[in-house]
């Protein structure tokens, strides 16, 4: 076997292995990213892990013993969210947030993560 062929076979093995790991990685970490209305209209992914983008409904935020409850909405569909963890700095009533989690049987989104959108430095210019 020539050196060149050995190298090619070695590279192919590495690439295939990495491809396989990447495929597994995608499968295990993929999250649907939608607006509350899009989520409501897709019952087939009702129990999947999702990331919803919406505005925090003013007056809906309640905190007790480290657990936060609030509602998010895209203006059409509201969802109740329950989150046990520290809320990000940019979190406030009326602000845009991303909420990642799963819907429980009562229709409350049990959040595993609440993310505020990036600082304006990174946002598209608003014209």
């Amino acid at each position: 076997m020539t050196t060149r062929r050995k190298l090619l076979i070695g590279s192919a093995i590495v690439v295939l292995a990495l491809g396989f790991v990447a495929y597994q990685g995608v499968r295990s970490s993929m999250v649907y990213y939608l607006t509350p209305t899009e989520f409501r209209d897709r019952p087939e992914i009702r129990h999947q892990k999702v990331r919803l983008a919406g505005r925090v409904v003013p007056g809906s935020v309640g905190r007790a013993e480290g657990v936060a409850q609030f509602e998010i909405t895209d203006g059409i569909t509201p969802y109740r969210v329950r989150y046990a963890g520290p809320l990000p700095d940019l979190f406030a009533e009326g602000r845009e947030v991303l909420v990642e989690g799963r819907l429980d049987d009562a229709g409350v989104l049990q959040a595993s993560q609440v993310i505020s959108t990036h600082p304006p430095e990174y946002k598209a210019p608003e014209r």
């Binding site: 990495l18 790991v21 990447a22 597994q24 990685g25 995608v26 295990s28 970490s29 993929m30 999250v31 649907y32 990213y33 939608l34 899009e38 897709r42 990331r51």
Partner: peptide
């Protein structure tokens, strides 16, 4: 539909 891959994907590979 937007489907995000999380840090899990990046770390795994």
């Amino acid at each position: 539909v937007k489907i995000n891959v999380g840090p899990g994907y990046f770390n795994m590979v």
